[in-house]
Design a protein around this nucleic acid. Structure first.
Length: 422
DNA sequence: TCTGGGGTCCTAGGACCC
DNA sequence: TCTGGGGTCCTAGGACCC
């Protein structure tokens, strides 16, 4: 039996914790560059604003003057997420975070559904009381069904107390008949269009399809989804269980850039961040890839896009080496005369933990390097992420994404919560 | 004027081997 | 018209998730 806890409208709920004036209003949180909608309040959903909607298209759905638009503050959201997860982990077993706002778990003991329901409903209340975030919990024999159960818990919290059990086979049948195929976890836009074209409208229709057909016409992945809907746990991989195979840092710039140094400055920042994450995960990268591209949406500008992957002599997580390699790759793909809108640095061929093969011919002294990096990390922890940086990355700013919708009211509070956790 | 930033898995097809 | 029968490894591309 799997439980799934999911924070309702998470980013919007975070903003509401610090500014109750947003309660009951149409609120959306915008992505980097205030580009598109990545979270919506129930009121904004009801107004028809879709997920991923470009900010400038909001007016096509509703009066934009009634919509509160906020720039995303991921550090704040991460902090509140940690508090929710820490409360949860005191009450349940095997809590495995799946994304910033949701986690799977199992029940502590095999208890009567009724007792457990009461306990879980109390837990939902406690999270709201202590952290301020509304959450929903769904239970089912597989993760895919737990997702379905969670949706139901969320849809009408007054009936469900925010908790829904999808356990009895008869109940599962009925619910699957009412679940549109496109709402099933693992079935995205393309697959649902293809399935609907064959008359598969609901999850119940899909379950009735012959498994052999699902596998041959589509894939083993989809067959697993089907088996999960039948109540069989297929151990769908949880990304958090799995060590990263690649780490990427990339950004769309606030405007199109043409200056090589400005873009190189961004590349340095991305490489620093990537190296830092490698060290946090106690991993090393075997190769580094840098990519650049123009603006898809500007038909009037010549478009250029390219990437270059370079192998490192020795797998490493050292910032200086990674920055150097990312810049080497950048030099290979830079073309004068084009405009650039986005760039990124990716660490690949990642190895984890100990047993890292060092190149015996490598002249660099790794222990010294490691001490230096550790010191830089702790200073940056203490005084802010960018207190100490490499010289090539110090000039600053042209590339940084633009965000113009921060909620001024809660800036100080934001700082305060950040400090509390240091 | 304005369209995010991360990740994963699977499959098909080509190169190459015996 | 016919064209062995296996393997492995790598890459590109397509699909999905939040």
């Amino acid at each position: 039996m799997y439980g799934l806890i999911d924070c309702n409208n998470f980013f919007v709920s975070c903003e509401r914790v610090f500014d109750p004036r947003f309660n009951g209003k149409k609120v959306v949180v915008l992505s980097n560059n205030d580009g598109c909608v990545i979270a919506r309040s129930n009121e904004a959903k009801a107004a028809g604003i879709p997920m991923g909607c470009p900010a400038f298209k909001i007016k096509e759905h509703t009066d934009p003057r009634q919509v509160i638009q906020l720039s995303a503050r991921h550090i704040l959201y991460r902090d509140l997420s940690d508090r929710v997860m820490s409360l949860m982990s005191q009450e349940v077993d095997n809590l495995k975070q799946y994304s910033v706002d949701e986690a799977f778990f199992t029940l502590r003991r095999h208890e009567e559904v009724e007792t457990s329901h009461r306990k879980m409903a109390e837990l939902v209340k406690r999270v709201k009381q202590y952290v301020g975030i509304p959450v929903s919990i769904g239970f089912a024999p597989s993760r895919t069904l737990a997702k379905v159960a969670n949706h139901i818990a969320k849809r009408d919290p007054r009936i469900t107390d925010g908790v829904y059990w999808l356990v009895r086979p008869e109940a599962i049948d009925i619910i699957l008949q009412r679940t549109p195929i496109e709402d099933v976890w693992g079935i995205g836009r393309r697959l649902s269009a293809s399935l609907q074209a064959q008359g598969i409208k609901t999850a119940a229709d899909f379950v009735k399809m012959p498994s052999s057909l699902v596998r041959s016409k589509y894939s083993v992945t989809l067959e697993r989804t089907q088996r999960e809907l039948m109540g069989h746990d297929c151990q769908i991989a949880n990304p958090v269980d799995i060590a990263h195979k690649s780490i990427m840092t990339s950004r769309t710039f606030g405007k199109v850039l043409t200056d090589r140094d400005e873009i190189a400055d961004a590349i340095v920042s991305f490489a620093e961040r990537t190296a830092r994450q490698l060290r946090d995960e106690n991993s090393v990268a075997g190769s580094i890839m840098t990519y650049v591209r123009g603006d898809y949406f500007r038909q009037d500008l010549p478009f250029y896009s390219n990437s270059c992957q370079l192998v490192l002599d020795t797998p490493t997580n050292d910032t200086m080496t990674i920055v150097r390699q990312a810049l080497n790759a950048f030099n290979n793909i830079w073309r004068e005369g084009f405009t650039y809108r986005k760039a990124g640095v990716m660490a690949l061929d990642i190895q984890h933990g100990g047993g890292i093969q060092l190149n015996v011919f490598d002249p660099e002294d790794h222990s010294k390097l490691r001490r230096l990096m550790t010191s830089i990390d702790s200073i940056n922890n203490m005084y802010g992420r960018r207190s100490i940086r490499l010289a090539p990355g110090i000039q600053r700013g042209e590339w940084s994404p633009s965000q113009n919708h921060f909620n001024a009211e809660s800036q100080t509070l934001h700082f305060y919560t950040g400090m509390m956790y240091r």
